[in-house]
């Protein structure tokens, strides 16, 4: 069971997250917060002239699941258009994580996704 939830892939992303940092030049800056545990994360996105994601970063604090999910999300959204970003679903996040997510950890897994989703809604 431990291997399932905390398999090396998740731990690697947690310890060495991709896209960790801030963007000074951004089109989107969106904060995501998990009220139950105090996790707090800010997502930054910069689009290029073709309206595709040129750069993405996040900063904040969280558990292994929320940080790994944010790290994976930054990898996957590069080069996507805003329309394509809107098509990302929670199911995609679970697939990326590749582990069973219990009801108690759904908010952790979807912390970065929710920030992304909120930011796209405000763009529309």
């Amino acid at each position: 069971m431990d291997e399932e939830l905390y398999k090396q892939n998740i731990l690697d992303h947690y310890k060495h997250p991709h896209g960790k940092g801030v963007l000074v030049d951004f089109d989107i800056k969106e904060r995501g917060r998990n009220a139950s545990c105090g996790d707090d994360l800010t997502l930054y996105i910069k689009f290029d002239q073709e309206h595709k994601v040129r750069d993405v970063a996040f900063e904040g604090e969280g558990c292994a699941i929320s940080i790994a999910a944010a790290s994976m999300l930054t990898e996957t959204i590069k080069g996507k258009t805003a329309k394509e970003l809107a098509l990302i679903s929670p199911g995609d996040i679970y697939n990326m994580l590749g582990i069973p997510i219990s009801p108690g950890r759904v908010n952790c897994a979807l912390l970065a996704y929710k920030a992304l989703n909120d930011s796209i809604k405000t763009m529309e």
Binding site: M1, D2, L5, Y6, S36, C37, G38, D39, E61, G62, C63, A64, I65, G104, R105, C108
Partner: peptide
């Protein structure tokens, strides 16, 4: 180096129920 949520989750696998959060 380990977030309280992760600590609590690993505990729960050993049938130890604790609270994590604020």
């Amino acid at each position: 180096g380990i977030h309280p949520h992760d600590v609590a989750e690993i505990f729960s696998r050993g049938q130890v129920a604790v609270r994590s959060g604020h």
